[in-house]
Amino acid sequence: MAAISQSLSKRKARRAPQKPSKLQPSSSLWVRVKKAKYLYLLLLIPVVYVFIFNYVPMYGVIMAFKRFTPSLGIMGSEWIGLYNFQRFFSSPQCLNILWNTIRISLYSMIASFPFPIILALGINYCRWSPLKRSVQSITFMPYFLSAVLLVGLMSQLLSVRNGVVNHFLSAIGVTPIDFMGNPRAFDHIYVWSGIWQGTGYSAIIYISALAGIDPTYHEAAMIDGASIWQRIWRIDLVLIRPTIVLLLILGVGSILNIGFEKIYLMQNSLNMSTSSVISTYVYSVSLKASRPDYSFGTAIGLFQNLVGVTLTLLINGISNKISGEGLF
């Protein structure tokens, strides 16, 4: 039995080279499709899933152009065109919300941009490996804290009553400040807690990029007497530029998509003037409202999505043109 199958496979193997390769256009499409039938079978579940969970909601976006009434369904509801968009752009909160969204994202992007690079360079050049390893582990740790725990920790430490920061301030003679309720402090708390949480995580990408640099560059530079500062400036930063550009593109594309979870937890009635952003606004006018306005929320969400896509494509195009380093 074994011998038969062996000889069979041998014969097949001998014949194999003469068979037209799968990639050759000579075999007809139908033959290739039939050959790949099991691959389609595997793909069936993800395709159906993505169709239901990703494409059906895209169809639901039509709600943005309708006065949606649950009893009538999406199709049956009255078509009102761009009315919801007009309503958003002419509403008094609109400018405030857009400004909050863009300001917080830009601030966050710019302020948090240099730290991972600095940390990665520091870890990369650190010679004492216990320090190196412990700093990397410690700085990476807060990434695993959930938004609930992060904001919970912040509100505890910054609390007017018994918060350690205010204990310290009153010790040096400053009257306690309600940080979490102060609209002017909101941006700073949001951004710097993000830096506290994310720097170690973002540094990993740069550490791996630095590890990928050909050591001969550094050896040659050292022979020529270059200092570490010079090597960082002329070798490391130049060679990790593609990574930096890539992360910037991804950041700009999501300028309007501030994560919902953290900002929603940080909001309270006192800081709404600076903390209300698109995603939380959508939630508050639709799902959270006592008279939910689904169409209005959908319209704002659609606007946010379209701006995000446009920005990503735009920045990618610019970066391709300037440096040839784009995402696609």
Binding site: Y59, V61, M63, L287, G301, L302, Q304, V309
Partner: peptide, 12 residues
């Protein structure tokens, strides 16, 4: 790139 957003997802 494209998603329905919070509300269409909720409806689904």
């Amino acid at each position: 790139f494209f998603n329905g957003g919070m509300i269409p997802n909720y409806m689904l």
